[in-house]
Design a protein around this nucleic acid. Structure first.
Lengths: 210, 210
DNA sequence: GTCTATAGACGGATAGAC
DNA sequence: GTCTATCCGTCTATAGAC
């Protein structure tokens, strides 16, 4: 990345959710997260990450066996966080399908609005991992998308929802969240909580739930 | 790209819309489109493109001055096509806001469903271009998104729509289309036309237009 | 317009001292 | 755990013959 052309995302804080302990290892992950989000995995070199941290390139190999393992850990943390956040939201929601959809969409929206860079890396750079490193994250992803689909199906069965198409509507609801990093500005007038309410409302409209 | 890890998209036909004449130049663009969509711009080398075409790497430089000019042309064609398709759709629609939204969403959906690879490259690899090469495409993109926003605003002013939030709802409508390449399978049961109708319906539900 | 050959920079990763 | 130094493969791009 000698040229440093454009940046995919404005370089924000790059905070890492989850339970990664403080230290150089975590600083590597946070720096790589920021650079991968801006320039992509293949557009970022080990030297770029090291320079940003004031380290020599070889120092990184005391913390990760290879460059792709840095990405793998980011992707894994991202998927674990998503899955955890959705699962908790659903557990804390009532039994009414509309409330469950609200809870899922709110959690999905807030996660994407507050961890934009991780969302971008998880969604755009997963393909750079060899299958064996991507597999655990893919399994979590399928579980997460199944959560919404099941709630929607149950709502339809109970006569609460009337979406024009199950999978396409679930995909549209999910798409709202996934696209947040590309237009939403946290510093703007719209708070993450407000956006979460908005998306919940739009989801229920799509489902015919109101 | 010695390792060839994962592929972001199933390798389809990779047809190029627009008016690029037949010949080696076009074959380069189509091959690069397929490889950029699968492995990204930085994950694809000039050698990869040449090998796929049965050419030597140096032969490509008779057609393009540099690798980034191949991407720039793909990005430009993609944005020109999008803008043209939306403009035409709007011209052929009536004056009723709901019909105009239907027309825009239908066109947006069909383009993304039938040119998935170009959509992916346009959306995920634009950042790899230096600003001066990306600028014309960015201008077209802003024009295109303004089309939807203006129709929505007019519909609100006429009392036809009642979206919970102008920009967020327009973003959600656009997101449906942009995410198509990541889940829709053209060979499946859902045709592009059916999906277009579905998305138009979902858009009008979000707008409170029915 | 395509070839062979290669220049010259940059890539990931390792060896070994401290 | 970080450093210096380096290996060596791949990268984009060019030179020059045909």
């Amino acid at each position: 990345m000698r040229s440093l052309p454009r940046s995919r995302l404005q370089a924000q804080k790059a905070t890492l959710p989850g339970t990664v302990p403080e230290g150089t290892r975590r600083r590597i992950l946070e720096t790589a997260l920021r650079l991968f989000a801006s320039h992509g995995f293949h557009g970022t070199s080990i030297r770029d990450v090291a320079k940003e941290l004031g380290l020599q390139p070889s120092a990184l190999y005391s913390h990760f066996p290879a460059k792709e393992n840095i990405l793998a850990e980011l992707v894994q943390v991202g998927h674990e966080t998503l899955h955890e956040v959705l699962r908790t939201a659903l557990l804390n929601a009532g039994s009414e399908p509309a409330e469950q959809v609200r809870a899922l969409v709110r959690a999905h929206t807030i996660l994407h609005a507050t961890h934009s860079q991780l969302a971008v890396v998880v969604n755009e750079e997963l393909h750079a991992l060899p299958p064996e490193l991507a597999a655990p994250a893919l399994a979590l992803r399928h579980q997460a998308s199944a959560l919404l689909l099941e709630v929607v199906k149950r709502g339809v069965a109970m006569g609460r929802f009337s979406p024009p198409h199950l999978e396409a509507t679930a995909a549209a609801i999910s798409a709202m969240g996934v696209r947040i990093p590309y237009w939403y500005e946290p510093a703007g007038a719209l708070t993450a909580d407000s956006l979460a309410e908005l998306h919940a409302e739009l989801a229920l409209r799509m489902l015919g739930g109101r």
